[in-house]
Amino acid sequence: MKFINYLESIAGVSIYPLVSLLLFFIFFTIVTVYVVKADKNYINRAKNIPLENEI
């Protein structure tokens, strides 16, 4: 299957992968910054939720 012929005829199709990568990097950066900056108390608190008040 040579989809390339059909895809190339779509106007501006090359923007799709470009937008994808850009979106991912922006998103990934935001998540990373959020995670690095996250409050240590919150992290420790959340981390231990499964182990709390076990019967």
Binding site: V31, V35, K47, N48
Partner: peptide, 18 residues
């Protein structure tokens, strides 16, 4: 014992579903 890194799990989640 708690999960090794909760911070890693947050990145794991968002990166994986994205």
């Amino acid at each position: 014992r708690p999960v090794y890194s909760y911070r890693l799990s947050i990145i794991h989640f968002w990166a994986l579903i994205f």
